[in-house]
Each structure stands twice: as structure tokens, then as C-alpha cells.
Design a protein around this nucleic acid. Structure first.
Lengths: 99, 99
DNA sequence: TTCAACCGTAAGCCGTAGCTTACGGTTCGT
DNA sequence: ACGAACCGTAAGCTACGGCTTACGGTTGAA
């Protein structure tokens, strides 16, 4: 899931969807890559559950998937708390390593 | 920064640091890769500002960098709110596209 | 001071991710 | 019914990322 956002181009595409749904051609304009490339990236993002698509006429509108974004948010939230807890615990028992 | 967490192995390493500081050899044990590989991954994570290291004797203890983690957390937090705002706005004016 | 433990870096190989071009399928307009 | 607009997928090339092996440097112990 995070590997989908690892690629810079894909992350740019994802961020361009934050302002609302967009079509493939719209996204491709303003990007230094071809339209098929964008299409492939969108497929990856969709498989990762980060975006959703709806057909409108001949166009295809892509938008950020709320659940997917929430999942990532939750991931880092948990990570954050866990790291804080470990840090606090290590602050109390300073010399206690070796395993 | 997110591209550092794109690689699965690197993400595993990062997650293994959530429970507290660890040495390179400790991390390498339990992973299906060699120690130098772990070392290289740690370098990437460090350059990305996600981990920090301290020398203890001949060992090197790596730990998650609070600031780096906070930065990522903030990134998704902002993204989340922005996406919500765009979604709410789109819910009011249904037919209003074309740019 | 010599040996062992622990680690970072260089060199090199190999798989794959990302890009482009080319093609075929839908859908709307005329 | 024909053409144009919009898009997804296949094929193929290239660059790069991740891994291993090999080496050298530093620290602590005997």
C-alpha cells in the first residue's frame, strides 16, 4: 500500500486528486509523462485501494479513496503512538539493553 | 521521504525500530537479507530523516526519528483534511465540472 | 598489541519498475 | 453510420534499486 506512494510521479498524481476528481487526460496535462503512463499509475493506485474511478461519458473520473487514505493515516498514527511509548519506556530504564 | 518507506524490506526495518533502538546485527537477524543490505537500507532511512543513530561501543544503535515520523504524520493529516473538504464541496455543487 | 566483534562502503550482478509507442475498444456527437 | 474524443492494455526498451561478496576501519577485550 505504501509502495504505491513510493514513486514520485504516482505521489504527484495522488496529490493532484486531493482537490477533487479528475480525468486521466486532465492529470496527464501538467505532468511530464504520457497519458498511458498516468493510466498505469492509476491502476496501481486503484489496486492499492487509494483511488476509485467512475465512468462519466467517455471520460473516467478518478478520486481519492477515503478508506484507503484513512488506512494509511491509521497506520502512521499507531506507529507514532508505539514509538512514543517505546521512547518513554526507554527514558525510565536507561541502562537495560543486550539481547 | 515516502520513497524511503516504499521498499518492503526497508519498511520492515523501520517497523522493527518502533519497539526501541536496535543494532544493525540485531535487525539483520530475523531478516532474509545480509547485514550490509540492512546497513544500506539504514543509510537511506537516515538520509530521509526517518531514523537516527548513536554509537555505543563497537555497536551502532538505530532508532526512529521523532521529527521525521511527525512530518509524515502531518503530511497525511493535511492530505486527509484537504480530501474531506474537496469531497464536501463536491457534495454541494453536484454538476460543476469541465476545466 | 593482537584478536575478535561490529559495522560502513565499493564493486558488480540481476530483476524489475517506469516510460514510450502502438493498437483496439467505448461512447458521444453529427 | 461515420468520425472524434477518451481511455486501457500489450510489447519492448532502459535505467535504476536492491542484493551479495569482499574489503578496510574502529572499538573493546585478553
Amino acid at each position: 500500500m505504501l509502495e504505491a506512494l513510493g514513486d514520485p510521479t504516482r505521489r504527484t498524481i495522488f496529490e493532484s486528486l486531493a482537490g477533487g476528481p479528475r480525468s486521466v487526460a486532465e492529470i496527464a496535462n501538467g505532468l511530464p509523462v504520457s497519458r498511458p503512463a498516468v493510466s498505469q499509475h492509476l491502476k496501481v493506485l486503484k489496486d492499492a485501494g487509494l483511488v476509485s474511478s467512475t465512468s462519466v461519458g467517455t471520460r473516467r473520473l478518478y478520486a481519492v479513496d477515503q478508506e484507503g487514505l484513512a488506512a494509511i493515516r491509521g497506520y502512521f498514527e499507531r506507529f507514532w503512538h508505539q514509538a512514543l511509548a517505546a521512547f518513554a519506556e526507554a527514558a525510565e530504564k536507561p541502562p537495560e539493553e543486550k539481547t
